[in-house]
Design a protein around this nucleic acid. Structure first.
Lengths: 187, 187
DNA sequence: CGCGCGATTGAGTAATTTCAAATCTAGTGG
DNA sequence: CCACTAGATTTGAAATTACTCAATCGCGCG
């Protein structure tokens, strides 16, 4: 029961059975169909999600109604519109399933209770936040120093399975180029 | 003594005098001249820095020896090459003073001791890491959805003082365009 | 005054976008 | 099994945007 979640957490902070039971009691488990939204732009963001299996896209819709891919969330990733989640404001991002997806979710109140009741978990989330910050910074560096083609090759190397799993137009959006340009890159 | 640091921390977690004395005992205080490096690419990263006053640039040097501005660190900012800091690996980034700068610094060992000895501080750093992550994500979104000109205007609005304080070529680098292109934007 | 750095301008080149059309592919129903 | 359709991908061509390299400008400081 909850093996994936436990393994994932214990990769950073070891837990006793009782501690993990306490942790697990703060999460809900949920399955979502392809195309289903876990977060809708403009609505309240009640949860942070941990992806057990499947694939999500985190997107930002600009004035011209184009969806920019802020992030793909795959197995073992934590994702949300964190800004809206922590501040209890309306989402500026959307989180939607690209595949049938299984997640755990936690509310802000449970998140706070969990951290307060078990400091190890606060440490765990600190570690996750740091890694997320570092990853975002890497992505910024890729925009500053790499060509579209190089960013594409880097993405391929890092997540070879992505190409099989999502339409290329989404890859293009993630890389910050038009789908036509992406198509012309690998010639 | 240490007023800036204390106020900054207490904006998130209130502290007693004893608690703050404990916190302060883990930090060193340091002044650095313009052009001085706090982190050099290739070297070990021994500290995270809190900027009391002054201005730093965090840069990444690519194959063509261009320095890309990953971030400006101004008053009240925490900055480091976090990846290298946490993993005790060599820096891939440099952190250099653009102005005479006053900082507090903390080593990884003291950081761990501080968090272990005062959970409030772990909470504080979690909060900081989250905000950093969110800020980086916003910057990614600006690359995905805004033109160079729009990114420039957004930066101006957010940090009006920057233009006065740093050469425009650095602003260009931060925005991801050549200095010539930036120069042509405001015509 | 003149040096040096940063900023701007000009001209040619390269990369990317846009819009439109053509092609490919997977899934559906007959 | 085949035909058909919707969505995804590719291709073409013109227009835009950005880059590079070189030259010039502007200004503060010794």
């Amino acid at each position: 029961m909850h093996q994936k979640l436990r393994q994932h957490i214990e990769a950073i902070v070891p837990l006793t059975d009782e501690e993990f039971a306490f942790v697990a009691s703060h999460f809900s488990h949920q399955k979502a169909k392809k195309r289903e939204f876990l977060i809708q732009e403009g609505q309240k963001v009640n949860h942070v999600f941990f992806v057990v299996s499947g694939l999500l896209k985190l997107t930002y819709r600009d004035e011209m109604a184009n969806d920019a891919i802020v992030s793909f969330a795959m197995e073992d990733w934590w994702e949300s519109d964190y800004q809206a989640f922590y501040n209890k404001t309306n989402a500026s991002l959307s989180l939607q399933c690209l595949e049938p997806t299984e997640v755990y979710s936690i509310t802000l109140e449970d998140y706070k209770k969990l951290c307060a009741g078990l400091h190890k978990m606060e440490h765990f989330f600190l570690e996750k936040a740091n890694r997320g910050h570092i990853a975002s910074q890497q992505r910024i560096i890729s925009f500053l120093t790499l060509s579209a083609r190089e960013r594409y090759e880097q993405l391929l190397k890092r997540y070879p399975s992505l190409l099989q799993r999502v339409p290329k137009s989404l890859i293009a959006s993630y890389l910050g180029v038009s789908r036509e340009t992406l198509s012309r890159l690998y010639n």
